[in-house]
Nucleic acid binder design. Structure first.
Lengths: 197, 197
DNA sequence: AATATATGACAGCAATGCTGACTTATGTGC
DNA sequence: GCACATAAGTCAGCATTGCTGTCATATATT
């Protein structure tokens, strides 16, 4: 995950050790077989989401750390890159944090020239966020750090699996989040295919 | 996400607002169509993983907050529940944090009777972690809070999609993480089916 | 007996959440 | 045009959860 050089005597042996893994936690008195099977499947989803998240963020985290930034900065860069001219209010809704928490992350990004804010045309109270060239470059660097892992996963799993992957993740997302996913998709139908064909 | 009652004047309108979503961030001069298509697919994975994670944790977070705990406590409870008699060292490797960070989370869980530690039989330096009844109950409560969302996702997406979902997530996981996933799977082949049939 | 390992504990620092309170600019309704 | 609402920013203080460094204790290993 992070930086764990030697120190006193922290964890060491990278061997997972033969864990029994009883999968206890529940099953008071069996009987409703299908119910428990279902439950185990949900727990598997949690297990795997945890590991995927952990391992996908490891490389970007290291880069961010060098720059004195953290994951919160990455999230902001990601979403501003994904939706240029994103309004501050939308970014808050996406991230699910308070204005004050965002400020601490966005402030430095703006001051150090990774993000710029324009005034809204329709509503001039709004600030529309965009990445500067420097911001695009950093976002790209972070993306490339995770890319290999993503590519390997897609390659190993194959096209149909990827489709299922996306379908399930969408299913776990609230209606609010889906609106943003849909907006991205709509943007793709306009601009994406043009590149391909 | 968290608790955001009214305060001064924070974010308000829950309307996503019609975001353009140019999907800029990159594409200097097009040409290698397939490459960029590929890139967009990876970015979609990041988008969706973010939302799924955000929305899946919202309900458990609220419960944890009531108890004065946080996500870190949830992660510990989850993994100890999944792998009873988990060694402290293994938990550290799974979570990817330092011993000192774990201590702050595990200490309270033990003191308040959610987790117990037994001495290792083979190596008596080891502490084997298990959930107490109280711990099982809390873990279950947290699980149930996320369950509905998981169930909806699996239902909407369907069996083959779920298979793909798991395959892709595994692909994003390092070899180290896969060992633990495999250990869980091995445990299932021993005990799981017995319940079903 | 010497050394290595598994765990625990103390101290201090950093990143990133939160709440509360207040300001400034701008839009809207009447 | 005035009253009120909304978008955004800012200051202050607190909590959670990471990190580093240092040291202690029990138990294996050689």
């Amino acid at each position: 995950m992070q930086h764990n050089p030697s120190q006193g005597s922290n964890a060491s042996k990278p061997e997972p050790g033969t864990q029994p893994g009883h999968t206890q936690a529940g099953h008071p008195q069996a009987g409703a077989g299908l119910l428990f099977l279902r439950e185990e499947e949900f727990r598997i989803a949690q297990d795997k989401l945890f590991f995927a998240f952990r391992d996908l963020n490891a490389a970007p985290d290291a880069i961010l750390h060098e720059l004195g930034y953290g994951r919160a900065h990455h999230r902001a860069l990601h979403w501003i890159g994904r939706m240029p001219e994103l309004k501050v209010g939308d970014l808050l809704l996406i991230l699910g944090i308070t204005k004050q928490s965002l400020a601490r992350v966005l402030g430095p990004l703006i001051r150090e020239g990774y993000v710029e804010q324009g005034k809204g045309k329709v509503d001039r109270r709004q600030r529309l966020l965009v990445l500067t060239d420097k911001g695009v470059a950093l976002e790209r660097r972070l993306f490339e750090a995770a890319r290999e892992r993503l590519a390997a996963a897609y390659r190993e799993a194959g096209g149909p699996a990827v489709e299922g992957f996306r379908k399930v993740l969408r299913g776990m997302t609230t209606e609010q989040g889906r609106k943003y996913l849909d907006a991205l998709e709509a943007a793709r139908s306009q601009k994406g295919p043009r590149i391909l064909t």
